Amino acid sequence: MALKTIRASSMADAASWYCATILLALILLASIRESSNSPTDDDPVRGKQFLQLNRPCDEIYVVGEGETLHTISDKCGDPYIVERNPHIHDPDDVFPGLVIKINPNSGSSNF
């Protein structure tokens, strides 16, 4: 009787390890798929493409790496970004993640 209990316990341990291994493999596979579907580091604003459905500018804009107020102004057509954002004290001190308010395409007729 004790031998059957030991075998049943070993089989339960083996099944539990097998399930844990399969679960870990599924989690790793899902994370690999997720990372391959996410934006690359070459994107100027990570994730913005997915969040805004390929619209270049919205009223609330998050500055991406390598962007300046000048490039954002050209991209969105708003030459008055500094005036609309009193929290920007130095126009040269713009960093990734900074949230700014813009009026998309407001100045495109002025160019």
Rank of each mutant, 00 (worst) to 15 (best):
111 F>W: 01
51 L>Y: 10
15 A>K: 00
13 D>R: 05
61 Y>V: 09
73 S>V: 10
13 D>Y: 01
49 Q>E: 04
4 K>L: 01
15 A>N: 03
6 I>W: 00
104 P>R: 04
40 T>S: 14
9 S>E: 09
81 I>K: 11
103 N>T: 06
81 I>G: 10
35 S>V: 11
68 T>F: 12
100 I>P: 01
106 S>T: 13
68 T>N: 00
76 C>T: 07
111 F>S: 06
36 S>K: 02
64 G>P: 04
92 D>N: 08
79 P>N: 09
85 N>T: 11
85 N>I: 03
91 P>G: 12
106 S>D: 03
52 Q>T: 13
70 H>F: 08
73 S>C: 12
57 C>G: 05
74 D>A: 14
63 V>N: 01
94 V>A: 10
6 I>H: 04
22 I>Q: 02
27 I>S: 13
91 P>Y: 04
53 L>F: 01
38 S>R: 11
71 T>D: 07
57 C>D: 10
79 P>W: 15
52 Q>F: 01
18 Y>G: 08
94 V>D: 14
28 L>A: 10
92 D>S: 08
35 S>H: 11
21 T>I: 07
47 G>D: 14
73 S>E: 06
73 S>D: 00
35 S>A: 12
7 R>G: 00
63 V>H: 05
51 L>M: 06
64 G>Q: 03
80 Y>R: 05
86 P>F: 12
14 A>R: 13
94 V>R: 13
45 V>E: 10
106 S>V: 15
96 P>T: 06
32 I>W: 04
2 A>I: 10
50 F>C: 04
68 T>V: 11
95 F>L: 08
39 P>G: 10
101 K>H: 15
92 D>P: 05
1 M>L: 07
53 L>T: 14
7 R>N: 05
20 A>M: 00
53 L>W: 00
76 C>Q: 11
66 G>R: 00
21 T>L: 02
50 F>N: 14
57 C>L: 03
96 P>Y: 13
55 R>A: 05
102 I>E: 10
30 A>G: 14
77 G>T: 05
93 D>T: 01
66 G>L: 04
24 L>N: 13
85 N>E: 13
15 A>L: 14
75 K>N: 06
75 K>Y: 07
77 G>S: 04
21 T>V: 04
47 G>I: 02
9 S>Y: 08
107 G>H: 01
20 A>N: 05
1 M>P: 09
67 E>Q: 08
100 I>D: 08
6 I>A: 04
81 I>D: 12
3 L>K: 13
69 L>R: 11
58 D>L: 15
88 I>D: 03
24 L>D: 06
40 T>A: 12
4 K>D: 15
